[in-house]
Structure formats: C-alpha cells, structure tokens
C-alpha cells in the first residue's frame, strides 16, 4: 500500500468517525450526564402496574412484521409464564411474569423488547455500521450491510439482538425496530396500538418522563421511585414504571454512563487523527535507521 493511499485511508476514517460520533459526543459533553436527542425522539412508557399480561402486543408485533403467529385466542394461555422467555427470531417482543412482593396482589407482567438506547452499544460496536439510530429514536438494523459477526449481541447491555442460528444462508439479526415503517406512515407502534389497558404510552421521550413523574405524584405508594431507562446507559427510548425494585423483575442493573463510552474513548484515543500510529511508525523507522547506520559504521571500522 503506498503512502498516499494510506493517508487517504486515514483521513477518510477520521472524517467518517467524526461524522458518526462527533455531534452526539460533543453535545453529551456540553450537557453533562444528559443526552443529546433530537426533538423528534419518541419513546414508550411501560407501566407494569397496569399490564395484565394478555400478550396481545406479541400478536400485534408479529402481525405487523409479517411473522408467523398462532391465532389471537391462543395468547390467552398463561402457562407460557412458567418459564422466562427472551425475544428471538420468532418474536421481537415477549411478556414475562414475576411474583408480586405484595402477597395477594396480582403477579407483575413485564413486556421485553429493544430499549432503543439513546447511545446504543450496537450502533457503536457494529463492524460495518449496519445499525443506526434514527431521528425518531428507533435503533434499526440494515440487512444489506450485516456480515453476521454478532458483535452487537456481545455489546448490547440488555441482551436484545438475536441471531438466526438455524440458517446457513442470509441469517438475520432480529430485534424490535420500534415499528419504524408504521411510524413513518404516522401510525403508532403495533404493540402500543393494540394494548387494551393502555399500559404502553407512546410520545416524545421528554414528555414521557414528565408523564411518569406526574403518575408517581398522583399515586403515591404505587410505584418505586425509579423510572427505569431515564438514565440507564445514558437513557433509553423505552422506559418502565414498576411497583417493586427493578432487579426483582429481571432488569439488569446498569450505570448511567452510555454503554459505548469507554470503548469509544479508547478507540479514539488510540487513533486520534492517526497521530499515535504514525508517530509509532516514525519512531520505529528512526530506530531502524539508527541501528542500521551504527551497524555499517562498525563494519567500516573493522575493514
């Protein structure tokens, strides 16, 4: 590889890098812990104290994504709650049920799907940039780029992306896409639309935080003082309210720092405008030249 093309390569990467992260990271710094989000960033507030575990959201999700699904009546079967389920290629969202600490009360049902992080680990990790964060907050996967390395699955703090291991050709990474196609048509996400008890509230993320706080104020004692997803890994589009500690509902305990933060700082530190690699190259070249000269001098002396 010639020097020139190498430099071009460096330059392009640096520009691409800046273009991808520059804006987001600078704004983050300016606002401290907070997160930079466009005004259009939407979200969903899940009130687990309202959810009745009817699993109509699962049916609606599959129908909206043209996935095979049993008829709606079958979803009344509550034996599925005996084992914890996770989203996979057969369903982008699942509802799990947990015992209520408050004995005698109904069990707690928790819908699981992609949280659509404000600063998604999958977007940062993906080797080919197949994931992107859209203006409406959705994190979506681009089939045409993906090489199936599954690094997104390693990176995701919520363990959401799933892989079609049974396929030899064109296996997909599957996960909730926040019904981007429906949102583009001005429709609600399928799960939100079908929910019969309004456990899911769709709206601007900032407004939803206010709604959650208002709910907590109006019904003291109904919720623990924690909106899950408000700050976790830098905030998520989907946020949860619950009557008991989230760790008892199998939510991972996460810090406020965005998941890709440390990794990206290391990456950008090592490659800051490609100075470190070029400096190392120059240093090694210098050492090589010196040693070679020393060698030939001593040879001349011998002669």
């Amino acid at each position: 590889m010639s020097k020139q093309s190498r430099r071009d390569f460096l330059k392009t990467t640096a520009i691409a890098t800046t273009a991808i992260t520059g804006l987001a990271s600078k704004k983050t710094k300016a606002e401290g812990r907070g997160v930079y989000l466009p005004d259009k960033a939407m979200g969903v507030l899940v009130d687990t104290t309202v959810c009745i575990g009817c699993r109509r959201c699962e049916w609606a999700c599959k129908t909206a994504h043209d996935m095979p699904t049993p008829p709606l009546e079958n979803y009344d079967d509550r034996t599925v709650y005996e084992n914890m389920r996770r989203p996979d290629y057969t369903s982008y969202t699942v509802v799990n049920e947990y015992e209520n600490d408050d004995t005698g009360k109904f069990p707690i049902d928790v819908k699981v799907q992609c949280m659509h992080c404000n600063q998604p680990a999958c977007v940062s990790a993906c080797i080919v940039g197949a994931f992107s964060k859209l203006e409406n907050g959705a994190v979506v996967w681009d089939e045409s780029k993906c090489i199936g390395c599954r690094y997104c699955m390693v990176a995701c703090p919520f363990q959401i992306p799933a892989f079609e291991y049974q396929k030899a050709i064109q296996p997909r990474i599957t996960k909730c896409d926040f019904c981007s196609a429906r949102q583009a048509e001005g429709k609600l996400p399928a799960c939100v639309e079908i929910c019969p008890v309004e456990a899911l509230t769709f709206g601007k993320r900032e407004d939803l935080i206010q709604v959650a706080k208002e709910k907590m104020r109006l019904y003291p004692g109904r919720y623990v003082d924690h909106i899950y997803g408000e700050f976790e890994v830098g905030g998520t589009s989907w946020m949860y309210l619950a009557s008991q500690d989230f760790s008892k509902l199998a939510f991972p305990k996460l810090q406020r720092d965005p998941a890709p933060g440390v990794s990206e700082s290391i990456q950008h530190g090592l490659f800051a405008y490609f100075v470190p690699p070029i400096a190392l190259y120059a240093l090694l070249g210098g050492v090589m030249w010196l040693n070679k000269n020393k060698k030939s001098e001593s040879e001349e002396e011998q002669l």
Partner: peptide, 19 residues
Amino acid sequence: GRWYYIWHPLIFWNGNSAL
C-alpha cells in the same frame, strides 16, 4: 453468519467499532 460478506468492512466503515 454471512461469511460471503467478509469484505463488507472494506466499504462500510464504522470508526467507532473496535472490531
């Protein structure tokens, strides 16, 4: 998973990714 796309990183770049 999609080994025949192993060359994709040559054209689709993500400078944030350690991989």
